[in-house]
Computed example of a mutant assay.
Amino acid sequence: MILVFGKTGQVARELARSEGVTCLDRAAADLADLAACAAAIRSHRPAAVINAAAFTAVDAAEEREAEATVINGTSPGAMARDCAALGIPFVQISTDYVFDGSGDTPWQPGDATGPLGAYGRSKLAGEQAVAGAGGTWAVLRTSWVVSAHGNNFVKTMLRLGAERDALTVVADQIGGPTPARDIAAACLKMVKTLATEPDKRGIYHFAGAPDVSWAAFARAIMAEGGRDCTITDILSRDYPTPAARPANSRLDCSGFEAAFDMTRPDWRDGLAAILKDLGEA
Rank of each mutant, 00 (worst) to 15 (best):
L15D: 03
A57V: 01
A57M: 07
A48F: 02
S43E: 11
A29V: 13
L15R: 10
L34K: 06
A35T: 15
P46T: 08
A68K: 02
E67M: 02
I41A: 01
R17T: 10
A68P: 04
D30E: 13
R64L: 14
A57G: 07
T8H: 10
G20H: 04
T22Y: 03
F55A: 10
A53P: 13
D33I: 03
A68M: 09
T8Y: 06
L34E: 09
R26H: 08
C37H: 04
T56N: 12
E62A: 06
A40E: 01
R26Y: 04
L24M: 11
A36Y: 04
R17F: 01
A52I: 02
L34A: 10
A32V: 09
K7Q: 14
E62H: 08
A36K: 02
V58I: 15
S43T: 15
E62M: 07
R17Q: 13
V58Q: 01
A38R: 14
G6H: 07
T22E: 14
E19M: 02
A27S: 15
A52Q: 02
A12E: 03
S43K: 14
D33H: 03
A68N: 05
F55E: 00
A27H: 14
V49F: 02
N51P: 04
T8E: 11
A16D: 13
Q10A: 12
A57C: 03
L31Y: 09
V11P: 04
S18T: 13
G6R: 03
A38G: 14
A57Q: 15
A68I: 07
S18K: 08
A48R: 02
R42I: 11
V58A: 05
A36E: 04
A57T: 06
D25E: 04
F55N: 00
E67Y: 03
C23W: 10
I41Y: 03
L34I: 13
V4C: 08
D30I: 05
V11E: 05
V49T: 06
L15H: 06
F5Q: 05
E19F: 10
A29N: 12
A35L: 12
L15F: 10
L15C: 07
R42A: 14
G6S: 09
S18G: 00
A54W: 04
A53H: 07
A52N: 03
G9T: 11
A48V: 04
A35R: 14
V11S: 05
V4H: 00
T22G: 00
T22S: 13
A28I: 09
N51W: 04
A57L: 06
A57W: 12
A32Y: 07
A47C: 12
A38H: 12
A36Q: 14
E14D: 08
D25P: 11
E62S: 06
L24D: 04
E19I: 06
E63N: 09
T8N: 13
A54D: 01
A66I: 09
T69D: 13
V49L: 01
A53M: 10
T22R: 15
A68H: 08
A52W: 01
A66P: 09
D33M: 00
R42M: 11
F55K: 05
Q10L: 14
L34Q: 06
T69C: 08
L34Y: 12
R17V: 07
A47Q: 15
R26K: 10
T8L: 03
A28N: 10
I41N: 00
E63S: 13
I41K: 11
R13C: 07
D25V: 11
A60Q: 12
A54V: 07
A12I: 04
E14R: 11
R17M: 05
K7G: 01
T69Q: 05
